[in-house]
């Protein structure tokens, strides 16, 4: 009997939860705010779906509701991607060690 591809996706999903569990526990508490902003940025990989929705099946300038919703979702996700990664970058730049000359 063939295995439904859904089972493979489910396996990826469950294994990723375990990876997330162990990886996140090893994040140092002082970096919990950057952790939240970076998870925010990466969860916006949902833009992949938005791009597909935006480009689906139009051959001329005749956009369907589905396309327009896709465009909107692209903008929202892009705010998050750029905003999330850059603000994380900005925060991480601030974490410095004690200067040696002290």
């Amino acid at each position: 009997m063939e295995i439904d591809p859904f089972i493979f996706r489910l396996s990826i999903f469950i294994l990723s939860i375990f990876i997330g569990y162990y990886v996140v526990w090893s994040v140092t508490p002082s970096l919990h705010t950057p952790l939240m902003s970076v998870t925010n940025a990466i969860s916006s990989v949902i833009i992949v779906g938005a791009i597909i929705a935006g480009l689906a099946g139009n051959s001329d300038n005749d956009f369907t509701t589905s396309n327009i919703l896709g465009f909107l979702a692209i903008s929202l996700a892009a705010v998050n991607i750029f905003g999330g990664f850059l603000v994380t970058q900005r925060m991480l730049q601030m974490y410095k060690k004690k200067k040696k000359d002290k």
Partner: peptide, 12 residues
């Protein structure tokens, strides 16, 4: 990519 990320962010 979405499934992996979703699971990571969800557990985080």
């Amino acid at each position: 990519a979405l499934i992996i990320t979703g699971a990571l962010v969800g557990s985080s």
